[in-house]
Structures are given as C-alpha cells and as structure tokens.
C-alpha cells in the first residue's frame, strides 16, 4: 500500500488581497521505502507540499491519503495526533529544543506517544542515538553541539518513533559538503535498514544523487518524475 497518495492537491496563499497559487493540482504517490528528492526553484511549491503532507497546513482542494486514511479535513488536534504518530520532520535549521539535551530531544516524540514504558523509551533513544553516531553526547544541549551533530539529533528525533513518513526540508543546506555527505549517508542507511519512506526538498545536486526517485516541481506542478 502507498504511504502517501494525493489527488488534485491545490493550495493558494492570500497575499495582500491577491490569490497566489502555490500548488496547482498535485497527484503524487509515494510507495513504502522510497527515498525521494523534491527539487525545483524557489517558490515552486516544495515547502508547501511538505507542509501539506506533514499535516502542518490544509489544502484548498484535493485529497491526501496517508496510510490509506484521508487526512485533509482533520481538526488541528487530530492533525497533531497524525503528526505525532506517523510523521517525522527534519529541518534545515535543525529546530532542536534548546533547553533539552540531545537525549531529551529524541525522547520527546516517544513521551508524546505515551505508548512506551520509561525503560523502553530509554533503550530506543540510546539505540538510535548510537545509530546516528552520537554515543557519549547524549547529555549535551544543542548549543554545545556542532551543526552536523545537531542535525543527527534531529534525524534521530524524526526516526525514533518509527514514523511512516519522514519529511525533510533542505536538511543539508546549512552543512558543509563533508557533513552533508555524512548526513545523507546516514539517512540513506536508515532508509535501507528500517525501510522508512523519505521525502526531502533540496537544491543540492549531491542530495539528488542519493535519491531513488527524483521529482521536480515548477510553478506548483510536477514537471518531472523519474525513478532510478
């Protein structure tokens, strides 16, 4: 079954009384385990699409099936539940919670799920932190970590709850090429070992090299969709 299936997804923004179309009918299906990159110039609608798929925003028209369930018309609280249970986010600016340690940042999604015992949570968090290569740094706060390390924490945080879909918005844009490569290796590895579906927006040709599927957006439409 497809992880994501959209049909006729449309989104307009209001800007000073004008309707600015951001997405003009997106039909997209993401299969389980795909490692997809979303390219396109600025303003082509990449972030808008990610926001809609991530239940952070609402579409004007069309439908989104996440795991076969329609999520387009949920209330804000229900949207929050979907995000909590099914979606992991990775951002360009990492967006870690500064007052929490690396361990606590990763722990947070599991605490929110209220599904695991404290012991289980600890095991899972430590395992994923080791997996992303942050052993021994669990108790540092974001301010004491380098950019690459912070993004690793963010990846661990996105993956710790074993989401159906990970959405990454320009995950390597703030990193130098060496760190970017390492992060991409890590994401690719997690994609392969855990079978998690990834969708990331990017400008970076390096990122596109790693992708198994390459979608290009222009003016709110999919203009190219190739699998490798």
């Amino acid at each position: 079954m497809a992880v994501v299936a959209t049909r006729g997804l449309t989104k307009n923004y209001h800007n000073g009384g004008m309707e600015v179309p951001a997405l003009r009918g997106i039909d997209l299906v993401l299969e389980e385990g795909e490692f997809t990159s979303l390219a396109g110039p600025s303003g082509s609608g990449k972030t808008t699409l990610l926001n809609l798929l991530g239940c952070l925003d609402r579409a004007c028209d069309g439908e989104i099936l996440l795991d076969g369930i329609e999520v387009g018309n949920l209330s804000t609280t229900e949207q929050a539940r979907v995000r909590r249970e099914k979606i992991g986010f990775i951002f360009q600016t990492y967006n870690l919670i500064p007052v929490l340690t690396a361990f606590e940042n990763v722990e947070l999604p599991l605490v929110l799920l209220r599904r695991y015992s404290e012991k289980e949570i600890k095991e899972r968090v430590l395992r994923i932190l080791a997996e992303v290569g942050l052993e021994g740094l669990e108790h540092r706060r974001p301010g004491d970590l380098s950019g690459g390390q912070q993004q690793r924490v963010a990846i661990a945080r996105a993956l710790v709850k074993e989401p159906r879909l990970v959405l990454a918005d320009e995950p390597t844009a703030n990193l130098d090429s060496e760190n970017a490569k390492a992060i991409l290796d890590l994401m690719r590895r997690l994609n392969e070992t855990r079978g998690v579906t990834f969708l990331f927006s990017t400008h970076d040709p390096l990122v596109m090299e790693y992708a198994t599927r390459l979608i290009t957006l222009r003016d709110g439409r999919i203009v190219k969709d190739e699998r490798r």
């Binding site: 952070l56 804000t76 995000r83 909590r84 986010f89 951002f91 919670i97 929110l112 945080r157």
Partner: peptide
C-alpha cells in the same frame, strides 16, 4: 517545531 512533533 513542537507542533510538528505532534504537540496539540
């Protein structure tokens, strides 16, 4: 970010 993590 907290909202993205699923804070209602």
């Amino acid at each position: 970010m907290l909202a993205a993590l699923g804070f209602a």
